[in-house]
Design a protein around this nucleic acid. Structure first.
Lengths: 206, 206
DNA sequence: CGCACAGTGGGACACTCGTCCCAGTTCCGG
DNA sequence: CCGGAACTGGGACGAGTGTCCCACTGTGCG
């Protein structure tokens, strides 16, 4: 019978829901499909949650909060800006390839939020932008560069780029092509920075 | 009673279906919602189509084919590469702002196709890439540049960028910010080209 | 003028959905 | 040991879904 406290059950249901969304899509994430994935009965669902909507909301916020760690690369010193950017994007690509359905589910949840919980979607993107900004600032600092566009702008550009890259890879799953795009993207973004004068950092080879 | 031939009815149902998807999302595009939007009865639906799935499939292919014209900018001579790219992206942004739900619907259909009709999604993106490649090639030619990465790579990068831009604008609908991103993106992409030696084109001001 | 047939309307089917209820079971404090 | 509360299982309800069927109406051809 497996008696478990409500809070634990809520968590189990949320992760089960995410698994269903990832493997079959949001529209297939019915209460019955979720409890089946979690191995419990329908009554437990409405004992733990008021409604399916509440679960979905929590699923989005939860997943949103856990996304933070994903992209930040292990920054190494002694690399050029292009290399740093390239490796950061490459890291994200690896993360995407390791669990494509995870990112696909994120996209699906974002789109759902876009329609029915716009503030949630905004929060999600604000968070992405914050991470991107931090990464960009760090990378520039490490290599003695400064950005020639406002940091938030560059950050949003980077977020857009990763989003687009995600969609692109999900569509044709061409790893080689994806790495070429990443390399090009890194060079393109790096072009928005210039060496800080007098910082002693090496210039970009032209 | 309004008797209309099947083919016309099919077309009417497809555009009605797209309107429903755009305004309420794919999951709300039930047979009943679609026929209501088209102002006909349920029986007419299954007289014109075998099933809802057939309609959705046709909706995707149809909409896919009509997307071609959207982005190609009215290329003007006597502009720099950055300006050309910037105006092209700006044109897309205007198109997006003019009818946000159209692009949101496209995204939703893409994601649906990604899950249940992968080849369709691939076709769609191949088409996007073709358009992007043509635009990039034209722009470089007009301004006496050549790309330092393979054209298909640059094209896919551009597609990724517009996709990401779309999502980004849909999420926070900040026009000013979007234009800044577009400007930055144009500069970044332009950095992937260099002036063709001996073509007499003006160099980029550094 | 009739008649076959393309096209139409409304109702019906089987199914899935979210939600709820209620009779049970297990646990914990007294 | 026992009573109440936390938790569970299964079945039920009404609404919405895709699909189908059948009686009906026009239209065009013989």
């Amino acid at each position: 019978m497996a008696r478990t406290p409500v809070e634990e059950r809520r968590r189990a249901l949320i992760v089960a829901a995410f698994r269903v969304v990832a493997s079959q899509g949001l529209s297939a994430a019915s209460t019955r499909a979720i409890v089946a994935e979690a191995g419990m009965s329908l009554a437990s669902f409405h004992y733990a949650f008021e409604s399916r909507d509440e679960l979905i909301d929590l699923l989005i916020t939860e997943v949103l909060a856990n996304e933070e760690k994903a992209v930040l690369p292990a920054v190494l010193t002694g690399k050029s800006l292009v290399e740093l950017l390239s490796e950061g994007l490459k890291g994200y690509l690896d993360h995407l390839r390791a669990d494509p359905f995870h990112e696909q589910a994120m996209l699906e949840l974002t789109q759902y939020a876009l329609r029915s919980r716009p503030p949630l979607a905004r929060d999600l993107y604000a968070q992405y932008t914050r991470i991107a900004a931090a990464s960009l600032e760090l990378a520039a600092e490490q290599t003695g560069h400064c950005w020639t566009v406002p940091l938030p702008t560059a950050a949003k550009l980077l977020v857009s780029l990763t989003d687009g890259l995600t969609l692109s890879w999900l569509v044709d799953r061409d790893d080689a092509r994806a790495e070429e795009i990443v390399a090009a993207a890194a060079r393109a973004v790096a072009a928005l920075a210039r060496p800080t004068p007098g910082s002693g950092a090496s210039e970009e080879p032209s």
